[in-house]
Structures are given as C-alpha cells and as structure tokens.
Amino acid sequence: TEYKLVVVGAGGVGKSALTIQLIQNHFVDEYDPTIEDSYRKQVVIDGETCLLDILDTAGQEEYSAMRDQYMRTGEGFLCVFAINNTKSFEDIHQYREQIKRVKDSDDVPMVLVGNKCDLAARTVESRQAQDLARSYGIPYIETSAKTRQGVEDAFYTLVREIRQH
C-alpha cells in the first residue's frame, strides 16, 4: 500500500529536517529553504509493509500558489509548527483551512506536530497545542528532528489516521 503524505507549515519550522531524519536517519543542521522535494521510503507499520511517498513543501509565502496542487494529491498532512515560534503555531489554522477548502472536506487525515521540542526556549505550551488538536479532532505529537524523538511516531500516526479514514 502506498501513502501520499504531505508536510506543511511555516518556513523554518523543520519540515525538511523531520523528513530527512525519518528517511535518512540524520539531522540536517543548516537551513536551506525548500521549494519542493519528495522522498520515498518502505516501512512496516503495524505489520503492514507500506511505501511512504512524502512531499516536503515550501513554507515560504512566495510558493503558496503551489499549495493547491499538492493538497489535492496528498492523502494525509503533517501540519508542523516549531514550539519556539508562536507565529508558526498561529499559521497552522490557515494551512488547515486551505487543506479543507482544496479537499472540499472537513475530515482530512492530519496530525499536528510541534517540532524542536529539544529546545528550552518554548513559547507554545503543550497544552495550547493539545487544545488546538482536540478542537480539530486530530492527534498532537511533539518531535525533535535533532534527537529523533517522536519522528517515526508522527509519520506513522498519520498513516494510521489515513487507514482509519
């Protein structure tokens, strides 16, 4: 089974770092803004072998026109913010609204991801993020692309959301 996953969120929150940590098991430290990259990885989730087709997208506003296209083809979405960047957390709402509009559905598989949880300088409390996820009816997972904490959990949870859909 193949799953088309799309990673969305503001610029600099760590979308590529999360994806590369999942696929290649290493942490990319330097920031190089993405336009669009796709990665494929075969994994076993709950005993089922599946192929993850992951689209890593641009957070930069100037590429926002490309969003409709990949939102149409994606089956599930990782909505990523950084726990030390309140603005990126506030941006999640717009991504969710755009996904709902493009998919013409209120019920699209999504996982809210709070990345950079290895950093002490948190400005978005776990509780705020949990409340937001609960209001959307989606899971919330904290990750660190640096330490790998929660990385597999985030992507695998999204696959489970798609399966249950």
Rank of each mutant, 00 (worst) to 15 (best):
T1W: 09
T1C: 11
E2W: 04
E2H: 06
K4N: 15
K4P: 09
L5A: 05
L5Y: 04
L5P: 02
V7Q: 01
V8T: 04
V8C: 02
V8I: 10
G9V: 01
G9Q: 02
A10E: 04
A10F: 12
G11W: 11
G11M: 10
V13S: 12
V13N: 05
V13W: 01
K15Y: 01
K15H: 03
S16W: 01
S16G: 02
S16C: 05
S16A: 03
A17N: 02
A17D: 01
L18R: 02
I20L: 08
I20E: 02
Q21I: 07
L22A: 12
L22F: 10
I23C: 12
N25T: 13
N25R: 13
N25G: 11
N25D: 14
F27N: 01
F27R: 01
V28H: 09
V28W: 09
V28L: 05
D29P: 13
E30I: 10
Y31R: 03
Y31E: 02
D32G: 06
P33I: 04
P33M: 06
I35G: 01
E36K: 02
E36H: 05
E36S: 05
D37F: 02
S38V: 15
S38A: 09
Y39A: 04
K41Y: 08
K41D: 11
Q42W: 04
V44W: 01
V44D: 08
I45R: 08
D46C: 06
D46S: 07
G47Q: 11
E48R: 11
E48W: 05
T49S: 14
T49P: 11
T49M: 10
C50I: 10
C50H: 08
C50D: 08
L51P: 08
L51K: 10
L52A: 05
D53K: 05
D53S: 04
D53F: 05
D53P: 03
I54N: 01
I54M: 11
L55T: 09
T57S: 08
T57P: 02
T57L: 09
A58G: 12
A58D: 03
G59A: 07
G59W: 01
E61C: 13
E61W: 15
E62S: 07
E62A: 04
Y63W: 14
M66D: 10
M66N: 08
D68W: 12
Q69N: 14
Y70H: 02
Y70Q: 00
M71E: 04
T73V: 06
T73N: 09
G74F: 00
E75Q: 06
E75S: 11
G76A: 15
G76M: 14
L78W: 02
L78C: 07
L78Y: 06
C79N: 06
V80L: 09
V80D: 00
F81R: 00
F81Y: 08
A82H: 10
A82T: 10
A82D: 15
N85K: 06
N85D: 15
K87H: 05
S88T: 08
F89R: 04
E90V: 12
E90H: 11
E90D: 08
D91R: 15
D91T: 11
H93Q: 14
H93P: 12
Q94R: 15
Q94G: 08
E97H: 09
E97M: 12
Q98L: 14
I99L: 13
I99Q: 06
I99D: 00
K100P: 00
V102N: 14
V102I: 10
K103H: 11
K103T: 06
D104E: 14
D104H: 11
S105W: 05
S105K: 15
S105E: 07
D107N: 14
D107W: 10
D107P: 10
D107Q: 06
D107G: 10
V108K: 01
P109C: 08
M110A: 01
M110K: 00
L112W: 05
L112C: 05
V113P: 03
V113G: 01
G114T: 03
G114F: 01
G114V: 04
G114S: 09
N115R: 00
C117M: 12
C117S: 13
L119P: 09
A121V: 11
T123G: 12
T123Q: 10
V124F: 06
V124C: 14
E125I: 15
S126A: 09
S126Q: 04
S126T: 10
S126Y: 12
S126R: 11
A129G: 15
Q130A: 05
L132Q: 10
L132T: 09
A133K: 09
A133L: 04
A133M: 02
R134G: 06
R134A: 13
R134N: 13
S135K: 12
S135T: 11
Y136G: 09
Y136K: 07
Y136C: 11
I138S: 04
I138A: 09
I138C: 09
P139W: 01
P139A: 06
P139S: 08
I141E: 08
E142W: 13
E142D: 08
T143P: 02
S144Q: 15
S144W: 01
K146Q: 13
K146C: 13
T147A: 07
R148V: 12
R148W: 15
Q149T: 07
G150A: 11
V151L: 14
E152G: 08
D153V: 09
A154S: 08
A154N: 01
A154K: 03
F155D: 00
Y156W: 11
Y156T: 13
Y156C: 12
Y156K: 06
T157Q: 12
L158F: 01
R160G: 07
E161R: 12
E161A: 10
E161W: 08
I162V: 09
R163D: 09
H165F: 12
